[in-house]
Design a protein around this nucleic acid. Structure first.
Lengths: 226, 226
DNA sequence: CAGTGGTCTAGACCACTCG
DNA sequence: GAGTGGTCTAGACCACTGG
């Protein structure tokens, strides 16, 4: 008797061989359950997996259709930087470059959905791998949305936040730019060298938490699994 | 009576307030089901969602533990480039720059897990948005793993593949680099300008399919939802 | 080897939405 | 209005694995 994974694979195969063409309706759950000789819940689990993968689209009453142009989805795992570095077999360290209260610059405020000038803590950190620069971090933290702050010379902001502040939503952006002066200096690279920048915005139950801009050392690659 | 989403939220909240600290075991499904007054399957659905989000870790016999350093996960939706451009309200077009058979270069072969020199089709495409360069695509295609090829002057390789070749696994990499001569020329930008590069490797049931290298026009941003 | 999560069943009710 | 997927139940068996 087939399990839900076998049914998922079978349906995927039947789509692949065009038994059901892109855009076509596939049989309903009840019908498939009868065909495969399983309970409807089992078919539901299988088709739901295909829907999450983007291969089919489901709508009540309208049924399940094979996607015309399946949108592929890749998953990015965002580890704490220490874990990322240690996972490569290198020694992690960081240096707190600066931490001072101040108002949010307009462009950061916009990203956080807060008014410009809103009270914030601006933090600059250099992450090191085997003693060499790994990434430069410029961060703005909304003190109103987090517990009392620890000593960031001892634990990195990054790690403290992950362990202490729940995130309910957020955004990640990748872009390439010519290294800004601050990042270039910290990373000890030529100003204007191409750097990969990761911008992350996160919000929690008590409002926007932080905006962080990571400039990676040249040659850095970010991997996602399909 | 609570549904699985409410139970998921409730458990998430109880973790947030440290009722169960990082690393601690949370009660078993049977226990939670009794507490919430629902069937075990409902609790299973809820906790499974938290496990997929990386907030807890489940192991048979060992039970469910709160993750120490939750690895956040972001999802990247990879649309066909035409859709991406049209989604911004711009007009999509593409130009097939070249397509010729040849052997795989060593570095591409390595990424595809094929021997160097393996028969392949090398394709160069320029994607346009509103008539202006949007991205430069250098692709190697493994003819052994795909159906007979259409006329790539009429449909972009990208789109044809998505609609006609199922993908079983793959990888996406982001990096920043100084624009290579070919890409710079096609995109009409200064050679050496910082460009965001996306490298994608995909494999199907019949082996490695394609390796594609997309150089985006400066200023391009890739967005992921957390 | 015993307890956990993983899965399955047969049935049921419901919300949604298309026609 | 009717058919679809979404969800839930109460029970069951099983694979895995930690003690």
């Amino acid at each position: 008797m087939p399990g839900w994974e076998e049914i998922r694979d079978s349906v995927r195969e039947r789509i692949r061989v065009r038994e059901w063409a892109p855009g076509a309706l596939i049989p309903g759950e009840e019908r498939l359950a009868a065909d495969y000789g399983v309970a409807r819940a089992t078919v539901n689990r299988a088709i739901r997996a295909l829907a999450e993968a983007g291969l089919v689209e489901r709508r009540k009453r309208a049924g399940t259709r094979v996607a015309e142009l399946p949108t592929r989805r890749a998953r990015l795992e965002i580890p704490v930087i220490r874990r990322e570095v240690e996972g490569q077999g290198r020694i992690y360290a960081f240096r707190l470059l600066s931490a001072r209260p101040g108002g949010l610059p307009a462009e950061v405020a916009a990203r956080l959905d807060l008014p410009a000038g809103h009270a914030a803590l601006a933090i600059e950190t250099l992450h090191l791998a085997d003693g060499r620069p790994h990434a430069h971090e410029a961060r703005w933290l909304n003190p109103a949305a987090v517990p009392p702050l620890p000593d960031f010379a001892r634990i990195s902001v990054n790690e403290w936040l992950v362990a202490n502040v729940p995130v309910v939503s957020g955004e990640v952006v990748f872009l390439a730019e010519a290294a800004l002066p601050a990042a270039a200096a910290a990373l000890a690279i030529a100003p204007g060298a191409p750097v990969l920048v990761t911008e992350r915005t996160t919000a929690g139950p008590d409002g926007p938490i932080t905006f962080v801009r990571l400039s990676h050392v040249p040659g850095h690659r970010v991997n996602l699994r399909l």
